[in-house]
Simulated assay, not measured.
Amino acid sequence: EQDLHEIYQGEVRYARDAFEGLRLMDALIAVKRGVPGATLPPLKQRRVPQRDTPLLDLTEPEPPVRSDVAIDNPVPTPPFFGTRVVKGIQLKEYASWLDEGALFKGQWG
């Protein structure tokens, strides 16, 4: 919240969760409507001090590390590409695999 407040010209507020967000919006609406005594909560102070140096030193790149994964493994070839229509299978052979809940609720609503 404090970091964004420094670079953004408008009002910046942070809410941890939906309930805090609702309280914040109530306060914001009350201020906009001119309710007497209505104010926005103060900006939250930064808990961690701001660093002057970056966490990573990017000036000297590290040499790339090779993994120990073998790259000479053969890639298997699939038996076919695309789709195939299989005919001659009876409904009773695959009906037990169907998820009726997903079929009726998910697909048909």
Rank of each mutant, 00 (worst) to 15 (best):
L28F: 14
L28N: 08
I29H: 12
I29L: 13
I29W: 07
V31F: 12
V31R: 14
V31D: 13
V31E: 10
K32D: 12
K32W: 10
K32E: 13
R33F: 06
R33L: 14
G34C: 08
G34L: 05
G34Q: 09
G34D: 10
G34P: 11
G34R: 11
V35E: 15
P36E: 08
P36A: 09
P36Y: 01
P36I: 01
G37K: 06
A38S: 12
T39E: 13
T39L: 06
L40P: 10
L40F: 09
L40E: 09
P41Y: 03
P41L: 02
P42I: 02
P42S: 05
K44I: 07
K44W: 00
K44L: 08
Q45P: 04
Q45M: 05
R46E: 03
R46W: 00
R46C: 00
R46I: 00
R47Y: 00
V48Q: 11
P49R: 07
P49L: 02
Q50P: 01
Q50L: 11
R51F: 05
R51Q: 13
R51T: 10
D52G: 15
D52H: 04
D52Q: 12
T53K: 13
P54W: 00
L55I: 13
L55C: 05
L55S: 12
L56G: 01
L56R: 13
L56A: 13
D57H: 04
D57Q: 06
D57V: 01
D57W: 01
D57T: 00
L58T: 14
L58N: 11
L58G: 12
T59Q: 15
T59W: 04
T59N: 13
T59R: 15
P61S: 08
P61F: 03
E62L: 08
E62H: 05
E62T: 12
P63D: 11
P63M: 11
P63G: 11
P63R: 14
P63V: 12
P64W: 03
P64D: 07
P64Q: 04
P64C: 04
V65I: 06
V65D: 02
R66M: 06
R66Q: 10
S67K: 08
S67W: 02
S67Q: 09
S67H: 09
D68W: 05
D68N: 13
D68S: 15
D68H: 09
V69W: 04
V69T: 13
V69R: 14
V69Q: 11
A70S: 13
A70R: 15
A70E: 09
I71V: 15
I71S: 15
D72A: 08
D72R: 06
N73Y: 07
N73D: 14
N73G: 05
P74D: 08
V75P: 03
V75M: 07
V75D: 09
P76I: 01
P76T: 03
P76Q: 01
P76H: 01
P76K: 01
T77E: 14
T77G: 01
P78T: 06
P78V: 06
P79M: 07
P79Q: 11
F80D: 06
F80S: 11
F80W: 07
F81A: 07
F81K: 07
F81N: 05
F81S: 08
G82E: 00
G82L: 00
G82A: 02
T83N: 01
T83V: 04
T83E: 03
T83C: 02
R84L: 10
R84Q: 15
R84V: 12
R84C: 07
R84H: 08
V85K: 15
V85C: 04
V86K: 10
V86I: 14
V86M: 07
K87C: 09
K87H: 12
K87D: 11
K87S: 14
